[in-house]
Design a protein around this nucleic acid. Sequence first.
DNA 1: AACGATATCGGTAACGTTTCCGGTAATAGA
DNA 2: TCTATTACCGGAAACGTTACCGATATCGTT
Lengths: 339, 339
Amino acid sequence: MKVVTIKDIARLANVSVTTVSRVLNHRPDVNPETREKVERIIEENSFVGNQNARGLKQTSEVVGLIIRGRSNPFLNSLAEAILDCAASLSDFFVTEYIDEKADEFETALRMTKQHRIKGMIFVGSLIDDRVHAIHGLEIPVVFTTVNAMAASLKNASSVAVDDRSMGRLVGEELLSLGHRKIAVFGSNPVAGDSLAMRFLGFCDAYADRGLTFEHQYYRECRFSMEAGYAAAREYFSNHSDTTALFAMSDAVAIGAIRALKDLGRNVPEDVSVVGFDGIDLCRFTIPRLNTVEQPVEEIARRSVNLLLDMMEKGAAPRHILVNAFYRSRDSVAAPHILP
Amino acid sequence: MKVVTIKDIARLANVSVTTVSRVLNHRPDVNPETREKVERIIEENSFVGNQNARGLKQTSEVVGLIIRGRSNPFLNSLAEAILDCAASLSDFFVTEYIDEKADEFETALRMTKQHRIKGMIFVGSLIDDRVHAIHGLEIPVVFTTVNAMAASLKNASSVAVDDRSMGRLVGEELLSLGHRKIAVFGSNPVAGDSLAMRFLGFCDAYADRGLTFEHQYYRECRFSMEAGYAAAREYFSNHSDTTALFAMSDAVAIGAIRALKDLGRNVPEDVSVVGFDGIDLCRFTIPRLNTVEQPVEEIARRSVNLLLDMMEKGAAPRHILVNAFYRSRDSVAAPHILP
DNA sequence: AACGATATCGGTAACGTTTCCGGTAATAGA
DNA sequence: TCTATTACCGGAAACGTTACCGATATCGTT
């Protein structure tokens, strides 16, 4: 199978490969007539540049995308938005999914070497101690859905919702309805990360009313329906007086609602449930899920702009907080057993 | 940032680049001592081969993966299984997501040129008239979740569940419970594709009992919750006597259940619903969804084996039908309004 | 002792593209 | 008319890796 190369195009167009390359890269210094002729020949032969050869030159601006979890619909929609939004801006994207326990620094480093990547976006990453190793990458990176300010990495920007405010909003919503015994299902919070911030905000709402959140109402739980189910099953078997649940992910909330049903408790009549992220599914569950909707498009747009600024203009890292939106639906009600 | 290349390793190990390459590719003709030394140096410098340079050589066996729809959980889990299963077998995977309306031949052709791909797996593809263009690819391809036998492409294998049998099984299940007015939400069926087969099987079940399926009960519907919702909303507003629904995708079923609820009809008391695919979510919805579970791991394993056989041994295309499993849960019951 | 077989290794030419440097021709300015 | 500038283009060297071919050394055979 003969594949057509830039050399073939050059021969057919009676120009040098250099000129074809110039046309391909929209360089200004080529005669309009020549350009047109070359473009026609490219079109006729449906020539597509070989990405391997391009990538071999150290100059190409390939950017990497690391996504934690292929099955997470929220992260998937975010990744999709990023790719859409960068389609016209960057040369090429190489994306890689990693699982929950994978080390993102290791992955990033390997990708950098394997593909000569010049910038990286992390979708749904964790900020923990190991993240400081990102220093070693020496390429600009952007973290999404997590505020990396606290990590103070010199080559890392971040775009995230204002988790603390949103946590507070959820707390206020539930407290103002009269709930007092509220469970929180978070996951593995590290000082300064998104989850910790949401939780802090949630506690702020308590403090506003002179209340304090008691730790016995908190459960650690991975971000899956399965885990949400298991956590709720365990928790509500032992805490029958709890009237509300704040799940820090929609998947967890959906698993929990199912577990509550199996325990003979209805949502929202017996227990109110609030999720986080705002995945499509929330609009179709029974009951429809109250949740905090993350502005996926905005996060995507700002992330790629941030990365491009850093890559092309050498801009300094920035940490952007965007606004989220509390969406009220059918999974929250006042507790009918008043204290 | 200085990246270490095979040349650096060769220099540090006092061998030629050729020898390092041999070590990298596990060639037999290298002295064990030398091999060990080189491997040590590679390890010490955490050297990773440049994929671009590898891909530039026409010999590397890169395989492509085309997935229709990033947000489809079933296809995502299938893609994940394929990647897992091929991780050790192939040199490198390049995956690309396409949307509903994209032409898979165009995409495949571009990928082939752009990345010098030697084999391709389609995850969740459509078999329509255009697919014959895959001929032009001249590389072995495997279609998953669709039986490509009818298309009789000389370079294409396929792995799919026995759609016709499963369609029949669903039909039997519902008919034997006493349902007679059953809606079917499929999508855009082309002669010989998966959906058409499921539908044919469903009609078989009718025929077995001397009944015939009437076309007024059929609705076309894209594979999303949104579309399932809209279709159900329209359909059940006009067909209040229908007591069951066979949705050819779990997402459609879930959207439909929500629509039924909004119409004041409960599942399964008023309407029974059966889905297709067996995504995780089915176990957590209210009610839990009856569905046909596709054997994701088996489809994945057989697909990569098929492709590898074709790529390496030049094996002839084969079309494999695997067994699916009807999972009975809470969304199906006997109709309480008997005819 | 001469020979062939085998194990182990190195030099070099590709792969397809971009970039650097330089060259020619046309045009403008003096 | 001469020079300087500009527009446009081409040759050749890289990028990192692998494949091909050939070279040497060792060892067993006759």
